[in-house]
C-alpha cells in the first residue's frame, strides 16, 4: 500500500475518532450563546467565550454529586466482592493441576456473551423479592455488577498468578509456611500490580455499566452516574449541560483505560486465535 494513501487513511480515521470527543468537550465549555443560536447562524465548531461555568454549577449540584458518590460506592463494593471471590479461585486455577482449566476459563469468559438485557429481568425480579429486597439498592447493583465482572477478574488474576514462579511458594512451604500463609505473605505482594489492574478493570466495568443499574434503580431515587445521565436526558436540557456531565463520566474511564490497557488487551482478545 502506498505510504501516502496510508497516511491519509490514518488521518481520516483519527479525525473520525477524535471529532466526536472534541465536540463533547466543545459543548461542555460552550457559552450559552454558542449553543442556543435560534438558527440565526450555524453552531460554531469552536465555542465563543469558552468558560467552565457548567462544571462550576455541576460542582455544587447536590443530585449530581450524590450520584457520583453512589457510582463510587457501587464500584468499590463491586471491586471488593470480585477480589474476595475471584482471586482465590484464580489462584487455585493457576496453581493446582485441575483438568480442563482452559475449557473452564473459556466457559467463564463466555458467560459474558449471554445478553445482559435477557438476564436483567430475572435478576431484577429476584432482587425485588424479600430476602434480597431488604438489602440497600446499592448493594444489589454491586452484586449484579459482580456477576458481570467476576469472570474477567478470575481471568486476569489467573494470568497474573501464572506469571509468578511456583518455586517461591514451594520454598516458603519447605520452610514451614502453610498454604494460606504463603498465599497471603509471599504471593499476594508479588501479584499486587496485576491484581490492581484487575481491580481497576472491575471498577471501570461497574462505573460504565448501564443496563443492570438502570433496571435495579428504576423505581428508586438513587442513581449511578449513567442512570443519572439518562434521567437528565428525559427533561431535554441544554446541550452544554448534557455534554459536561458526559465528559465528567468519561474522564476517569479514559485515564484508567490507558493505565490498564496492557491487561485489557489480553482480556479482549482472549481465545481469539488458537
Amino acid at each position: 500500500m502506498g505510504s501516502l494513501v496510508k497516511i491519509i487513511l490514518i488521518g481520516i480515521i483519527i479525525f473520525f475518532i477524535i471529532f466526536p470527543i472534541f465536540i463533547l468537550f466543545k459543548y461542555s465549555i460552550s457559552d450559552k450563546d454558542s449553543v442556543v443560536t435560534g438558527g440565526k447562524y450555524p453552531e460554531p465548531f469552536w465555542p465563543f467565550n469558552p468558560n467552565f461555568k457548567m462544571f462550576e454549577s455541576l460542582s455544587v449540584r447536590g443530585d449530581f454529586l450524590y450520584s457520583g458518590m453512589v457510582s463510587l460506592e457501587v464500584g468499590l463494593l463491586t471491586v471488593i466482592f470480585c477480589l474476595f471471590l475471584g482471586v482465590p479461585t484464580a489462584y487455585a486455577l493457576a496453581r493446582f493441576k485441575i483438568p480442563g482449566v482452559g475449557v473452564l476459563l473459556f466457559f467463564l469468559l463466555s458467560i459474558r456473551l449471554f445478553p445482559d438485557i435477557s438476564a436483567v429481568i430475572p435478576v431484577a425480579e429476584q432482587f425485588f423479592k424479600p430476602p434480597f429486597s431488604y438489602l440497600p439498592p446499592l448493594v444489589l447493583v454491586a452484586l449484579a455488577h459482580t456477576l458481570l465482572s467476576l469472570p474477567y477478574t478470575i481471568y486476569i488474576a489467573e494470568g497474573v498468578f501464572e506469571s509468578i514462579p511456583k518455586d517461591l511458594e514451594e520454598q516458603s512451604q519447605v520452610l514451614g509456611a502453610s498454604r494460606a500463609y504463603s498465599f497471603l505473605r509471599i504471593l499476594t505482594p508479588l501479584a499486587l500490580p496485576g491484581l490492581g489492574a484487575a481491580a481497576i478493570y472491575t471498577f471501570l466495568l461497574s462505573w460504565n455499566e448501564f443496563v443492570f443499574a438502570y433496571f435495579l434503580l428504576f423505581q428508586g431515587t438513587e442513581s449511578t452516574l449513567p442512570v443519572y445521565l439518562l434521567r437528565i436526558l428525559t427533561w431535554s436540557p441544554q446541550k452544554n449541560f448534557i455534554a459536561a456531565i458526559s465528559l465528567l463520566i468519561c474522564i476517569p474511564v479514559i485515564i484508567f483505560t490507558f493505565a490498564v490497557q496492557r491487561y485489557m488487551r489480553t482480556g479482549l482478545t482472549a481465545g481469539a486465535v488458537k
Binding site: 477524535i18 470527543i21 460504565n208
Partner: peptide, 16 residues
C-alpha cells in the same frame, strides 16, 4: 489513538 473509542462509555457515545 485507535483504541480511544473503547474508553468512551457506550451511553456517552450515544449521547454524543
Amino acid at each position: 489513538l485507535f483504541l480511544v473509542p473503547i474508553a468512551i462509555p457506550a451511553l456517552v457515545t450515544a449521547v454524543i
